[in-house]
Every structure is written in structure tokens, then in C-alpha cells.
């Protein structure tokens, strides 16, 4: 077990967030069983007031998760000096089998937290809180994710063996190796690029459809998530080599460094926000038929869709520009 302030902080956060969610879910269970919006009883008032506490707890938990995702990557980056063969975060995540799952769980918790908060926001717009039982049942589903994240992360840090020689982005994302990551990097850049632009176009179409027909919000959300995943793959497969100007350097983390003008932030921040917003459209739009929610669905869902599409467009513009302005030429090799 390696003990550094950043690791302590990450463990502290995941413990605290788990406890916060357990507390919130305790209240949630009470609400699910006892809620009666038509009652004027004092108990109902107490429950109603607890919903404020639950939302507050979840908002902070979500913020903490977001910062901890960043810190996790930074920490992996900074620990790369402590492992033989590790040159960046990739190497540290490869120290044991728990590294990547931790990262993915953090991302999943982030997205489910965002989706839940959107649902919560929508429900608070309806004077009869029509989604109350649904949203608190869903909240109970997030708890195991958060606890899993805590456990997996703890294992990741606990089983860190500084003597292990790890494979880093050079070998992990090289086309010869057999890992999943290599599979991602080894995808023909031509195919990755095709998928990247085609899926982007499809998402744009589904967005336009949604905005004009006021239906298909869930399809839009699915497209958004798909584009998010494909964009990630595209970044590993062909965008990052162009940024590094090195045809075999596929790494999703090194682009966050100053040496590459922090290019990663310009891709990841809009990409994450856009995906969250698209997810929000999917969460909000199915409720247009509930009378007390109809007004805010009609008002908010198109807004989210617009914003999400704008940010996705930004990701596409950014990556296209990065590819075009790079001095790496792969004409004849990749296409």
C-alpha cells in the first residue's frame, strides 16, 4: 500500500461519498414507503423537508466525484515515476487489474449522478412531485456503484507493487499487444475516423429530429452516449497520434500535459459536458405527458439538446482542427 496525500484524499472522498449516499438512501427508503403528497400531516412535511437534504447531499457527492475523477488521473500521472516502465498515467493504471475499472466506475458514477440530479431537478418542477418514488428508487441503484468504486479503488491502491514492471502507453496502446486497450488503439484509424464522423452525423440528425418532432429524446441520449464512447476511441486511435505527432503514440492521458498545450482538456471537457446534457435530454423528455411536468419538459429538453449538440460540434471541430494542423502526415499509410 502506498501512502501519499493524494491517495489518502481519494480514499477519504470515496468513503465520505459512500456514507453520504447511504444516509441519503436511508431517507429515500422512508420516503418511498411513507410518501403521501395529499396528506397534510406533520410527517409528510418532515419527509418533504428531507428531500432538500437528499438533493444537497447528492449535489455535493456529485461535485466531489467530479473532482476526484480529476485527482485520480493527476495522481496516476504523478505516480508514474514510482513504477518501472510507467511513463504516464496509463502505466500506473496498469499496475494491477483494478486501475482501469476504478477509472471507468468513477466515470459511470459521474454520469449516473448527473442523470439523477437532472431527474430530481425535473421532478421539483412538478407541484405534485410525480416522480418522487421513481427517483428515490433509482437513487438506491447508485449506492452499489459508489460502494463498488470505493472497494475497487482501495484494491487498486492496496495492491500497488512498486517492483512490478508495468507496460505503459507505448506498449499498451501499441497495435501488437493483445489487451483491450491495444484493441482500441489497433482499430484501423480509417475505420475509427469513419465511425467518428458517421456517428457524429447520426447524432446531429437525431438531435434535429428531436427538436422538430419533440420525440425521440431517448434515441438522442443513446446517440449521445454512443458518440461519447466512439469519440473516446477516436481520441486513442487517431486524434492523439496527431497531437503527439507520432504515429504509434496512442495515449488518452499524455494529451492533458502542458507539453501538448493541454489539448486534452479542450476535448474532454466539452465531450463530458455534452454527453451529460444528452443524457439529460433522455432523462427529461419521456415525461412530457405528465401534466405537471409538461411545461418544463417542453421548455428545458430542447435547451439541453441544443447545448449538447453545440458542445459535440465543438469536440468535432477541435479534433478536426488538431488533425489538420498537425505536422504528422499519414497519407498513404492510414488513408
Amino acid at each position: 500500500m502506498l501512502l501519499s496525500p493524494a491517495i489518502l484524499a481519494l480514499i477519504l472522498v470515496s468513503v465520505t461519498v459512500s456514507l453520504m449516499l447511504l444516509l441519503a438512501s436511508g431517507f429515500a427508503i422512508q420516503i418511498i414507503t411513507l410518501w403521501d403528497i395529499n396528506s397534510g400531516s406533520e410527517q409528510q412535511l418532515v419527509l418533504e423537508r428531507r428531500t432538500y437534504l437528499i438533493s444537497t447531499l447528492l449535489t455535493w457527492a456529485f461535485v466531489a466525484e467530479l473532482v476526484s475523477l480529476l485527482l485520480f488521473v493527476y495522481n496516476a500521472e504523478s505516480m508514474s515515476g514510482q513504477f518501472v516502465g510507467a511513463m504516464c498515467a496509463t502505466g500506473v493504471l496498469n499496475v494491477n487489474v483494478w486501475g482501469w475499472p476504478t477509472l471507468f466506475l468513477k466515470m459511470i458514477v459521474f454520469f449516473s449522478g448527473a442523470a439523477w440530479l437532472t431527474l430530481n431537478y425535473l421532478d421539483n418542477q412538478g407541484y405534485d412531485y410525480p416522480l418522487v418514488k421513481l427517483k428515490y428508487s433509482l437513487l438506491l441503484l447508485i449506492v452499489p456503484l459508489v460502494i463498488a468504486e470505493f472497494v475497487v479503488q482501495l484494491l487498486h491502491f492496496q495492491e500497488m507493487e512498486p517492483d512490478v514492471i508495468v507496460s505503459c502507453c507505448g506498449s499498451l496502446f501499441s497495435s501488437e499487444s493483445e489487451s483491450v486497450a491495444a484493441g482500441v488503439a489497433g482499430i484501423q484509424p480509417r475505420i475509427a475516423m469513419l465511425a467518428f464522423y458517421v456517428s457524429g452525423l447520426a447524432m446531429l440528425l437525431s438531435g434535429v429530429w428531436f427538436l422538430r418532432r419533440k420525440s425521440g429524446g431517448i434515441l438522442f441520449a443513446v446517440m449521445g452516449v454512443a458518440v461519447f464512447v466512439i469519440s473516446m476511441i477516436a481520441i486513442v486511435s487517431f486524434v492523439s497520434p496527431y497531437i503527439y505527432e507520432h504515429p504509434h503514440h496512442h495515449c488518452p492521458f499524455c494529451i492533458l500535459k502542458s507539453g501538448h498545450d493541454f489539448a486534452g482538456y479542450f476535448l474532454y471537457i466539452p465531450l463530458f459536458v455534452a454527453a451529460v446534457l444528452a443524457l439529460g435530454v433522455g432523462v427529461i423528455s419521456p415525461w412530457a405527458k405528465v401534466p405537471s411536468l409538461a411545461a418544463s419538459v417542453v421548455k428545458d429538453a430542447p435547451r439541453l439538446a441544443w447545448l449538447s449538440m453545440a458542445l459535440f460540434a465543438m469536440v468535432y471541430a477541435m479534433s478536426t482542427w488538431m488533425v489538420l494542423s498537425s505536422s504528422l502526415t499519414m497519407q498513404g499509410v492510414w488513408w
Binding site: A6, L12, M20, L53, L70, L71, S78
Partner: peptide, 22 residues
Amino acid sequence: DGMQVATLFFFTVFPYTVATII
């Protein structure tokens, strides 16, 4: 360094905030 600031945030601001929620 960004990592230090984030770590420090989790040792000070975060506990403070959590302690004051209730």
C-alpha cells in the same frame, strides 16, 4: 501543481462542506 491543490481541497474544503451540510 493542480494535483496538490486538488488534494488540499479534499483535506480542507471538502470536510468543511460535508460537516456543515446537515
